[in-house]
């Protein structure tokens, strides 16, 4: 049968290398996970600076967020990997550079989310806790932060998904993730459609799984 299309679909090379695609996807997943955890840790710190009493600290945190949210991830990746590494004389491995870029970009978003979450809490919560004799740190630890986490789960989930999508960019600096697997395949067998369809499908499945997990978490955390 002659096809209407001038293109012969050859799925063999993709299907034969399903294990490579999965390994590549796994790399994207763990790089995303590490970056997300680090971004959350930095984000909480920056959020606390953003609402602190000292003007200088607030200004610094504001500048940090505005700057990092304005730099496209691709630009940041190149900047870290080629530029900053050269100036300070550190040789980042591609994966390290990727984690640095994803973490810092992500931390600007998580900082805004945590700030929003803290400010959404009723002021009476902090006042009540202080008047019951809890110190500042205990007030945060036992009263404010636990309540905040319930609020920030949905937007944090979006950031997590955003970071996963961002991680696919890492192949540009030669990280061997699933996009790189597809690139190699495309070069060796010239099957661009099949190779990139595989990557797109994996990404869609991963994002769908994450979304499902997050809505489950939201349901669990919802107040009765």
């Amino acid at each position: 049968m002659t096809s209407l299309l001038a293109y012969d679909f050859v799925w063999g090379p993709v299907l034969d290398r399903w294990d490579l695609f999965l390994l590549g996807a796994w790399l994207d997943v763990w790089v995303t996970a590490i970056s997300f955890l680090l971004a959350c840790a930095i984000g909480i710190g920056v959020a606390l600076l953003r609402i602190s009493g000292a003007r200088v600290l607030r200004g610094f945190a504001f500048g940090y967020v505005q700057f990092l949210r304005g730099v496209p991830l691709l630009v940041f990746l190149y900047w870290v990997y080629f530029g900053i590494a050269l100036v300070i004389g550190i040789n980042f491995s591609p994966i390290q550079a990727g984690i640095v870029a994803l973490t810092l970009t992500g931390s600007a978003y998580t900082a805004e989310i945590f700030r929003g979450g803290l400010q959404a809490l009723d002021a009476g919560q902090a006042e009540a806790s202080r008047s019951l004799g809890l110190g500042r740190i205990d007030t945060y630890r036992h009263v404010l932060l636990p309540q905040m986490f319930r609020i920030v789960v949905p937007p944090l989930g979006n950031t997590l998904i955003g970071l996963l999508k961002g991680a696919t960019l890492l192949s540009i600096i030669a990280v061997h993730d699933m996009v790189q697997v597809a690139n190699d395949l495309n070069i060796n067998f010239f099957t661009p459609f099949e190779a990139f369809t595989a990557v797109a499908l994996i990404l869609i499945v991963l994002v769908a799984a994450l979304s499902a997990g997050l809505s489950f978490l939201e349901r669990v955390l919802r107040l009765p």
Binding site: L5, A6, Y7, L74, K165, G166, T168, L169, I172, V179, A182, N183, N186, F190, P192, F193, E194, A195, F196, T197, V199, A200, L203, I204, V207, A208
Partner: peptide, 24 residues
């Protein structure tokens, strides 16, 4: 759902190399 799940990078590669090759 599909387009919000894809990263622009993957989509650009898919479009510029994949779709372009299939439809010539």
């Amino acid at each position: 759902q599909i387009f919000r799940a894809l990263s622009l990078y993957v989509y650009v590669l898919f479009l510029y190399f994949g779709i372009a090759a299939v439809f010539g």
